[in-house]
Amino acid sequence: MLLPFDYVRARSREEAVDLALRAGADGKFLAGGTDLLVRMHDRQLRPQMVIDLKGVSGLQGVSCCDGEGLVIGAATPLNRLIRDEAVRSKYGLLAEAAHTVGSLQIRNRASLGGNISNASPAADTAPALLLYEAEIVTWGASGRREIPVGEFFKGPGATALAEGEFVSQIRLPVLKERSYGVYLKLGRTSAVDLAIASVAALALEGGEVRIALGAVAPTPIRVKEAEAILRSRKDEGAIREAAAAARRRAAPISDIRASKEYRLEMTEVLAARAIEQALAGLAAGGR
């Protein structure tokens, strides 16, 4: 059972922003609801107004603009993303990461915009977005903004979004090279769990290897130090050094899922595996 509130389905971006500004702290945006409604059910949140964004134009679906990468509507359910041919063929790492979110039922509702707006350090899609260097398109009182994903996350539950502002689209810049991405997530159970630690690695044909971490810092983070090590060398020793660099960047906490120490160790283990697998995947043809 949920406690009473008012539900409004916004018809435009402007209306959504207007409603949110008027509701202030009592207002919450709704897309898939798989986080918001859970918190409301658990009585952690009690908004007076819930503003549904799913009817706002531009927030649904994946569009591919030739030579300009990909635009994903923020309210697009993850399963639609995972099944989208353009995403799978060119941004496979994002599809793979999205695939590890919750259950099939959850992924039919949960949206990409919601996954990042909640700003959980463990948000599964965030490391992939960091590696694809996504731009987060937002709408708010001051109109449209584009925020590089690296500047979007500010801390656990905190983002660059201003009051009344919401994520409307996620833009993935064009990736001209062949690439191969791997997302490794360690949970407690093999399915439907939150990450204790996660690592994404993206190997690019030009020799670059990008690395990002989830659940081991206040925000998802990209580890340029590790990437630098792999720029010229990709032997076993370099992979080990890069993994160690990832571990040094990690700043995890101890919580009910795992201790800080375990998370640190797993960051290194997963990073080494992810890099290795990404390089092997690229060598085998990539995407």
């Binding site: 658990d42 093999s190 399915a191 439907v192 769990d193 939150l194």
Partner: peptide, 16 residues
């Protein structure tokens, strides 16, 4: 009790 939900009290799923 810190984990009164299936989020943090995991039971085996079909994947196990």
């Amino acid at each position: 009790l810190l984990n009164p939900s299936y989020v943090d009290y995991k039971i085996a799923t079909a994947a196990e």
